[in-house]
Design a protein around this nucleic acid. Structure first.
Lengths: 209, 209, 209, 209
DNA sequence: TATGAATGAGCCTTCATTCAT
DNA sequence: TATGAATGAAGGCTCATTCAT
C-alpha cells in the first residue's frame, strides 16, 4: 500500500466513522420521533436510546430540528423502501395495486414503527413546521406518481380499461388508505381498513379489461 | 329577599362566573391546541391568549391534560355543530351527503381553526394519550353513525338503491375525506380534495334509484 | 377601613412583594456582576447568592441580560449615591472637589464592591453590549456634569479663578481617577493613586483665587 | 547529509512548524480575546478564526487559560512594539512625549484591535485571574518606566526643568490617557481625549526649560 | 502534528404546577 | 374566584477538554 493510499484510507475511515454514528443516531431516533411526535421527543430521549452523550448528538446534528428532519426523512424512506421491495416481487399492475393495498392493511402493526409517517409528521407540521410539511408533501407526490405509473402501465398492458383515470384513482386509493389508517389506529382494530381494502379491490376489479 | 336566598344567589353567580370563565378558557385554548398540538402548546400560550393569570387556569382545570382534553372535545363539538347546522338545512339524504362532502371540501380554510381535530389529535395521541385517542375514536364512530343514518334514511326513502351498504360507504366517504384533508393541507391547495369530492359524488350518483 | 381601601392595600402589598424580591435579587447580584463581569457570572451564581430558585429569577427578570442591566444600573447608582452623600457634607466647591478625590482614593477598598463599575462594565461592554455601553456613557456624562457644576459654582463664588475651564478640568480629574484606579488595582496598592490625588490637589490649589 | 542530521532536521522542521502554528493561533486569537474578553471568548471562536481543528488547539496550548495568557501577552507586545516604532522615529524627549500622547489619541480607532489591552484585560482579571492581573501590572510598570526614562533623558538633556518629577508625570500622563480611553470609547467620539491630550501637552510645555 | 468524534458538566431558559394572599 | 410569586425538574444547547486515529 502506498503512503498516499494509506492516508486516503485513513481519511475515509475517519469520515466513515462520523457518518456511521450519524446514521446510527438517525436509526435510533426515527421510531421515537414517529411514535411520540417531534415536539414531545426530547434530545434526552434520543440520548437514552443511543446510549450516546448529549454533546455527541450535537457533533452530528446542528440542533434538534435538523435531527428531527433527518428522522422524518428516514421514516419516509424506510416506508418507501419496504413498499418497493414488496412491489418489486409482483409482475402485473393489478398484482402491484393489490400488494400496495395489503402493505397498508394493518395500521395497528404498521410497516414502520409508530404508524404512517406522512400522517404523523404531516399533521404535526402543517401549521408549525414548513420544512417538514414540504418533505411530507413531496413524499405524498412521489407516492401518487408511483401509483399513477402502475395504473398507466396496467392500461398500456391492457390489464385495465383505457378510460380509467390513473391519477384520479391514485388519489382515491391513497386518501382511502390514509383515512383508513386513522380510523383503524383509533379503534385499535382493522375492521374499517378491511372495508376500505375491499372497496378498493372492488374498484380495481371494475376497471379490469 | 331572605338572607339565605341572597347567599344562594351569590354562590350561584360565583359558580356561574366560574363556569363562564372555564368556557372562555376552553374557547381560547381550543384553536391553539388544534393548531400547535397538545405537546407544543404550553400553559403560557393559553395564559397569553386568555389574558388570565397562571393560577387562574388551575382554578378551572386540574392540570394541562384536563384542559387539553376539554379543548379536544370543544374542537370536535364545534366541528360537529357546524356540520349539523349545514346538514339540517338539507332535506333529502342525497342533499345531505353532498353537503357533508362540500363541508369538508376546503382543508386549507377548514371549518375549525387548525384543521380536522380528528386527524390532528388522533395522530398525536395514538401512541401516547389513550384518553384523547378514545375521544377521537368515539367521534369517528359518531361521524360514521351519522353518515350511516343518512344513507339508511335515503334507502328507506327510495332515494338510494336498497343493495347499497350504508356503513361501508360511510367508511369509504369518511376515509377519503380525511385522506384528502391530509393531501390538500400538505400541498397547500385543494386539487386532490376536488378529485375526491368528485369521485364521492359519482359513487353517490351510481347508487341513486 | 373601607372595603375598597382594603382591596387597594392588598393590591399594593402584592405588587410590593414582587418589587421587593426584584430589588433583593438586584442587590445580591450587583456585586457579583461587578466583580466577575457579566459574561462570567452565571444565573446559578445569582441563585446561590439569593438562595432563590432558578425559576424564580425568571419571574422577575426576562433573561440574564435584563438582570445584568439592572445590576449595572444598581452599581452605578450605589456609587453615585454614596458619592453624593459625601459631597453633601461639604460646603465650598474646593472642599467638594477634594472630597471627590478622596472618595476614589483607595481603589483596593473601593466604594462599591468589585471596583469602579464604569471601568468594569464599560470595558466589558464596549465592543459587545451597546445597551450597557450607553448606560456607562450616560453615567460618565453625569459625573462630568456634576464636576463641572461644582467648579462653576466655585468660580461664581470666587473660590476659583475665572479663567479656569470647568469642563476641561472635570475631564482631566475624571480621567486621572479612572486611570489611577486601574493602576492601583493592578499593583494591589494605592501608590499611584496617591500621586494622582496629589497632582489633582495641586492643580486645584493653583486655580484658587 | 547523515541519517542523524536528517532526523534532526526533520525534528527541527516539525518544531518550527509547531511554533509557527502556535504563533498563528495567537495572532488570530489575540484580537478576539481583546474584543470580546476572555470569559466570552470560546475555543470554538478561535477554531473558527484559525480554521484549525479543535484538537489542534490543544496540541499547542494546554488549555484555554494558557492560550488566553498568550493572547494577552501578544496584545500587550503588539501595542508596545507599535509604540516603540513610533517613538524610535523621534529624537528629543519632548517629541517622544508628544508622539506617545498622539499614539493613544484615537481610542475609537486604537493601535490594537479591541482597544487598550491593559484596560480590557486588567478590568476583567482584577478580581478573578491573578496571572493575567500580574501580567497587566508588569506591563503598566514597564510603560511607566519607559515614560520615566524619556523624561529623565529630557531633564539630562536640559530639555525639561530639573525639578520636574519624572515618575509622577509618567503616572499622571498614563492615568489620563487610560481614563480618556474609557471616556472616548464610551461616547464613541474623541472629544474628551482631545481635551486630555491638550492638557498633557500644556503640562509638558510648562516644564520645558 | 493534526483531526474531529466523544464526553459530561454547565449554560440559559421554559415548563407544569403549587401556594399564600 | 383570582392573582402572580415561587419552585425545581427538564428543556435545548455550548463549553472546555480528551482521545483514538
Amino acid at each position: 500500500m502506498t503512503n498516499r493510499s494509506y492516508i486516503c484510507t485513513v481519511i475515509l475511515l475517519i469520515m466513515a466513522k462520523g457518518e456511521e454514528t450519524r446514521q446510527f443516531i438517525i436509526e435510533k431516533a426515527a421510531p421515537i420521533f414517529n411514535t411520540k411526535g417531534i415536539a414531545a421527543t426530547s434530545m434526552s430521549d434520543i440520548m437514552e436510546a443511543t446510549k450516546l452523550s448529549k454533546g455527541s448528538m450535537y457533533v452530528h446534528f446542528e440542533n434538534k430540528d435538523v435531527l428531527a428532519c433527518a428522522a422524518v426523512e428516514h421514516n419516509m424512506k424506510l416506508l418507501s423502501d419496504r413498499l418497493q421491495r414488496v412491489l418489486s416481487g409482483r409482475k402485473t399492475a393489478e398484482e402491484q395495486l393489490l400488494a400496495y393495498i395489503d402493505f397498508f392493511s394493518d395500521p395497528n402493526h404498521p410497516p414502520v414503527v409508530g404508524g404512517c409517517p406522512l400522517l404523523n409528521f404531516g399533521m404535526e407540521a402543517d401549521d408549525t413546521n414548513p420544512i417538514v410539511k414540504e418533505k411530507v408533501n413531496r413524499a405524498i407526490k412521489q407516492g401518487q406518481e408511483l401509483l399513477t405509473g402502475i395504473i398507466e402501465k396496467g392500461i398500456a398492458n391492457k390489464e385495465f380499461r383505457a378510460d380509467w383515470s390513473p391519477s384520479d384513482f391514485a388519489t382515491v386509493l391513497f386518501a382511502m388508505l390514509e383515512g383508513g389508517h386513522l380510523m383503524s389506529r383509533m379503534s385499535g382494530n382493522n375492521d374499517r381498513m378491511e372495508v376500505i381494502g375491499d372497496s378498493l379491490k372492488k374498484m380495481i376489479g371494475e376497471n379490469k379489461v
